[in-house]
Design a protein around this nucleic acid. Structure first.
Lengths: 93, 93
DNA sequence: TTCACATATTTCAATATTTGAATATGTCCG
DNA sequence: CGGACATATTCAAATATTGAAATATGTGAA
């Protein structure tokens, strides 16, 4: 229980930043390119890439190269339900 | 969407600490006294009280005095589903 | 090879968080 | 009132996070 709390807290910390949260929300829908996320979020390239690096380190997303693009997707099945619940509670008016 | 993300991220930050998360997990079940939480979590009095103060500031819990005891409960209906989802994902082996 | 595009990494100052220790406040009882 | 119990607040040092700026790396096309 204590260990589960440690692990959940680590994941929550990764989610507890507005930009990272929006990135993850997008990825719940489907794979995305770094450039797509930059544009839809209106954030700078370096910053988005930096946040993605952090999410990668935490094991929450993974990426594959596709030509000069990098396609990101969620890689921890535990976070999808969490994001969905957050969406229901904070985004449906 | 941006505002919702800001708000959700603020709540997630409050949840992203193992002690606070365990406190909130307990409160999903039922009201609890500071002393009860101290004992069941094995944490010091000052520390528990400090984390509760933070959760109060964020509006996630509220308390009422009952003699010399303080009874805490969840006060933001949005967090209960989030905690339940976390429990399903991180605590059911 | 060279250029332009797409993405990644490093670095840094400002700011926030974490936790323990000491101390304060509020309440009941005799 | 005075003491014991329950809880709260304050303080501070160590550590972590934030977000911007500069720079580096990988890839395809000419």
């Amino acid at each position: 229980m204590r260990d589960a709390a440690e692990e959940a807290a680590t994941v929550l910390k990764a989610l507890s930043n507005p930009s990272r949260l929006l990135i993850l929300c997008q990825l719940v829908e489907e794979e995305r390119t770094v450039g797509e996320m930059e544009k839809s979020l209106g954030l700078g390239q370096a910053y988005v890439s930096q946040q993605l690096a952090r999410l990668r380190d935490e094991g929450l997303v993974s990426a594959t190269r596709d030509g000069r693009l990098m396609r990101y997707r969620l890689s921890d099945p535990r976070v999808t339900p969490v994001i969905r619940t957050l969406y229901e509670q904070f985004c449906s008016q």
